[in-house]
């Protein structure tokens, strides 16, 4: 297939016209960009879709960008967003430090950025940060954990991704409570990458070396489901209490059925909608926003589960 010079010319022309059209769009409806750390995880898909839906409800065009957990790709998205004249960014950062420079770039271009769920380590880059309070949430889970196990026994902790902020915020919050009880003994601590299958396999192996356990704390709900399946396979699900974090739909129903003991319910819809509303207010002229707005993580147990649905909806 040879490209003739005419074809090349037409192609260039078409591209140029395409770009022209994009610029003209500036006079049309205002646009919000939703830049999400990864769409490879249902929780973030939900966050992104809720943010885009709320923006549309408020009369904006909304477009979702997937950073695929890659801060460099995220930087490209910001470049594109600035060039194509978006009016605001609803942002879920890939990295607390690495994303700062991207947010500053948008700020310099006069585009406000509203962080959702995850924070960035800067107080003067984003217009506002609406954050899930993972640390306090896992303290609540930890306290309930200690109570349910009568402050003694052997337990296992499944970590998420060992390089991820949230992994350690949840683990540290949990341990800040549980480590006060010397009779609560952590017999194994392994990572399962927030992944259900990995959690199942890791838990199966852990059960082999530690059959005598009373509790499992998991850094998210997918791992809690995987760990529960391993316990069922080993026939000890009835005597081991499993704790998760997120508030995913299958865990909410598992709590109702008594399979999982508790989870920390996050509210992605609250964070997403508030970010969209803030952006709308900014575009209408409001300028004073609180830099950090924590959204509480609530403890969901068998006693209060009827008040909740997936992701707090």
């Amino acid at each position: 297939m040879k490209l003739s010079s005419t074809k090349v010319f037409l192609l260039v022309l078409a591209l140029a016209l395409g770009c022209k059209q994009q610029e003209d769009k500036n006079s049309g409806p205002k646009k919000m960009a939703v830049i999400i750390s990864t769409l490879n995880n249902p929780w973030f898909v939900f966050l992104g879709e809720r943010a885009a839906a709320k923006a549309q409800e408020l009369g904006y065009e909304a477009k979702i960008f997937d950073s695929q957990n890659n801060t460099a790709l995220e930087a490209d998205h910001f470049d594109n967003v600035i060039v194509s004249g978006f009016d605001a960014v609803l942002f879920n950062p890939t990295d607390a430090d690495g994303s700062v420079v991207n947010v500053k770039k948008a700020k310099e271009a006069g585009i406000p950025v509203f962080c959702m769920d995850r924070e960035i380590n800067s107080l003067n880059a984003a217009t506002s940060q609406i954050l899930s309070d993972s640390y306090s949430g896992s303290i609540a889970v930890g306290a309930y954990f200690a109570q349910q196990l009568n402050k003694k026994g052997n337990y296992v902790e499944l970590l998420g991704l060992v390089g991820d902020n949230n992994t350690w915020a949840r683990s540290n919050g949990f341990h800040s409570v549980v480590d006060n009880y010397p009779e609560l003994k952590m017999v194994a601590q392994q990572n399962a990458d927030f992944d259900r299958n990995k959690a199942l396999e890791v838990m199966e192996s852990i059960i082999q070396s530690n059959p005598n356990i009373q509790g499992v704390f998991c850094g998210n709900d997918a791992m809690a489901m995987g760990a529960y399946q391993a316990l069922v396979g080993a026939g000890i699900a009835d005597s081991v209490k499993v704790f998760g974090f997120d508030g995913a739909d299958d865990v909410v129903s598992a709590i109702q059925e008594g399979k999982i003991t508790a989870t920390g319910m996050q509210f992605p819809n609250v964070m997403a909608e508030r970010a969209a509303i803030f952006a709308d207010e900014y575009i209408r002229g409001k300028r004073d926003f609180a830099q950090k707005i924590p959204v509480a993580v609530e403890l969901v147990t068998a006693e209060n589960v009827e008040n909740y649905a997936a992701y707090g909806e």
Partner: peptide, 15 residues
């Protein structure tokens, strides 16, 4: 086999 084991088809399975 993975889907059946987990009783769940995960979009990020097999990464």
């Amino acid at each position: 086999m993975v889907t059946s084991r987990l009783d769940s088809a995960q979009p990020n399975a097999g990464l």
